[in-house]
Nucleic acid binder design. Sequence first.
RNA 1: CGGGGCGUGGCGCAGUCGGCUAGCGCGCUGCGUUUGGGACGCAGAGGCCGUCGGUUCAAGUCCGACCGCCCCGACCA
Length: 482
Amino acid sequence: MSAQGVTPQSEDFARWYTDVVQKTELADYAPVRGCMIIRPYGYELWEAVRSGLDRRFKATGHRNAYFPLFIPMSFLQKEAEHIEGFAPELAIVTHGGGKELDEPLVVRPTSETVIGYAYANWIQSYRDLPVLINQWANVVRWEMRTRLFLRTLEFLWQEGHTAHATYDEAQEETLRMLDVYADFAVNDAAIPVVKGRKSSQEKFAGAMYSYTIEAMMRDRRALQSGTSHNLGQNFAKAFEIKYLDRSNELQYCWTTSWGLSTRMVGGIVMAHGDDKGLRLPPVVAPYQVVAVPIYKTDAEKSVVLPVMARLVAELRSAGLRVHVDDREEVSPGFKFNDWEMRGVPLRLEVGPKDVEKASAALVRRDIDDRKQAKSFVSQAGLANAVTGLLTAIQASLLQQATVFRDAHMHAVDTYGDFKAVIEQGDWALAYYDGSAEVEDQIKADTGGASSRCFPLDQEAGAGKCIVSGRPAKERAWFAKAY
RNA sequence: CGGGGCGUGGCGCAGUCGGCUAGCGCGCUGCGUUUGGGACGCAGAGGCCGUCGGUUCAAGUCCGACCGCCCCGACCA
């Protein structure tokens, strides 16, 4: 890490990422391997993700609740595929209060099982359905290799868990929540995403179908940014989640679960960041505007500061998140670079000339060229100008990410083209029979590219699997992924 | 767990064939001058050289073990 700024993205993306996360004070390493200390700036970003999602969950009829951290080991074993999938990454508590426990407790890697237990008790009749609950929680998965935000042993997330009377309702819910994630990603995080269905290898352990939103990072690798699962009746059967239908017959429920984690913070970093550091979308940025006063002498300072204070108050009363950098010990130039690294979307400068002319300078973070990024506006109506620019920046970041992404996604028809596309680091869309052998073959041939999803928006058609030649009904996206 | 790299003030590093009081840049503290794109001067503070054990008159330096971190793979939100 250099003393000033971060390793340029173009030089070493992985290094750039770790530099950015630490130098912008999003997070720090913890004393335990693979764990992370989320610092205020990073936590505020997560809080913005949280509030954007929470609002949408409530608007679609969900309520928040909280289920316990510890789960009896036996619960996980009730669903065969579930335990098989999670067993290698469980943290297990064997002792408590100085004594060995009769039954080990698992630190939740996800909560389908405890929640299934509760739902079995709560649900008797079709009148109790649907149950639409979400929880905000931490979970633990003992991963081999970790990276700040992208994969940590403990992470924060939300997990929605719903129970329904029919398959169709569960499927509808699964896709509704996938849409909620996509809406959040696009409109709040300014990240374009591909919605799709996971291959059977990539699906959640215990799910019938898993759906995902996949985003492209600036190094073109894919990031699974949120998942929504139709669990079928797998967990209902394992936990006896049953209801009496209208004709007084006992039926198993159909359940869903869906989650989005602090990984999204890493996604925001990697989808928008540039050589200078972060570029945060205004909707989720902890500070939307940073105000830097400019003065040389005490006399100038005494005229600049009151004007700045007045303007900042106006912006705040317009509902904007504004930070005033009134540090005396660093120069304005230093502050400009510092806040650009931290990704604040818009900078407000007020100096002696502005006081004279009743103007202010606004500088956009999303535009590289300094002259183009900077504009001078009248102090009158500043809040409107700022709001307008923030809207433009939000749109521009989405636009830039979309243009970048689309330039690196290719539909292919031959395996030669497929490998060439992956080789150059891009995403390839190809007919795929969905088999594990083909996926393994592709992984081996391409140095680790995996199927990301069968995109939902593809036209119905048929073709031959690009590897096996077997008939395939759908195309899938393949890419190297985080 | 396999391969590669690295552990020396907060951060980044130097420290030659073992030798004297362990150094440099950044940052930090104080004072003064500065301030519209990463200011400067002066004076300071800050180290069990990752841990343990060996070799030696003498170890940051040589040997061994261990621990930790980073990068690349197998596994994953």
